[in-house]
């Protein structure tokens, strides 16, 4: 790892000020992706601005149907939150599948979304739940937030402060983890609300997380795992790598969608 100047921010304002003063700064939350990336020199920022001690980013609130989760809330905290479990248990389930217990104690929802790893879990949930990503300057619909592999609509000096979504009537998430890395080779989040079905897929797309029109149409007609028996997801825009071909991933997407629907209806 190249050397780096570390700064700890006590507030959002301070974080933005510290970032502005840095030559080539990066925000760090749990650092479970960034520190390993710095160790392999895939990332080499001049300065790190640590957001982990900003109290304002750590709140979880559920008011009526509206769920708001601070960007600094860890995966372990989401997994264990009774408030979130009452509103959207599928999200707790998803958070408990990320990495391992040690990683979940550090990694945060804001950090995961800002990184937008194409095989990360949270992007699928945000897209399927039609969540709003709240930042230091604006609110961005999940639909507009994820713009490609490791790419988001965030400006360099913009910090995610929270995410907000309405609790769906039903939701489920299932992923097929890579046996070594535990990242999703295909992860599918389904959400039903007011008769509308949204299905988002992570880990499989060539351009990151996406909604599947084929799965949504089949589930809108009948919301059951058996409704997906004859559905095929086109492999054209899916990823091929050393772990699996696009065609294999297309099969996994349907299989995971069935499991996610089974969870949502159980």
């Amino acid at each position: 790892m190249y050397d780096v100047n570390y700064h700890r921010a006590g507030s959002l304002e301070e974080a933005l000020k510290l970032f502005k003063a840095a030559e080539d700064g990066k925000f760090i939350a749990g650092g479970q992706t960034l520190i390993p990336a710095m160790k392999t020199r895939l990332a080499a920022p001049s300065d790190l601005v640590d957001l982990r001690h900003i109290a304002d980013l750590k709140a979880i609130s559920v008011s009526g149907k509206t769920v708001t989760i601070g960007a600094g809330v860890t995966h372990a905290e989401v997994a264990a939150s009774a408030d979130i479990a009452a509103a959207c248990p599928a999200l707790c389930h998803l958070a408990g599948l990320i990495g391992d217990p040690q990683v979940r104690h550090m990694g945060t929802i804001g950090g995961s979304l800002a990184n937008n790893d194409p095989a990360a879990d949270y992007p699928a949930a945000m897209l399927a739940l039609a969540a709003t990503i709240i930042t230091s300057t604006r609110e961005i619909a999940a639909e507009d937030f994820f713009t490609g592999l490791f790419e988001t609509a965030l400006e360099e000096d913009e910090i995610i402060t929270a995410v907000r979504f309405d609790a769906p009537e039903k939701a489920g998430y299932a992923k097929f983890p890579n046996p070594a890395s535990r990242y999703a080779m295909a992860g599918v989040f389904v959400a039903v609300d007011g008769g509308a079905v949204r299905v988002a897929v992570t880990g499989a797309g060539d351009d990151g997380v996406f909604r599947s029109a084929e799965l949504e149409a089949a589930l809108a007609a009948e919301f059951s795992a058996s409704a997906l028996e004859a559905v095929a997801v086109p492999a054209d825009d899916l990823m091929t790598d050393i772990h699996a071909s696009a065609e294999y991933r297309a099969g996994l997407v349907v299989a995971m969608a069935k499991r996610a629907v089974a969870m949502a209806t159980s």
Partner: peptide
């Protein structure tokens, strides 16, 4: 950050000490 041999407790919770800077 995969093997966990460096696991310690940070403020009471298990974390991997190889994936954390001392200054953090």
């Amino acid at each position: 950050s995969q093997c966990g041999a460096c696991t310690i407790h940070l403020d009471g919770k298990s974390v991997k000490a190889c994936s954390l800077l001392a200054v953090q």
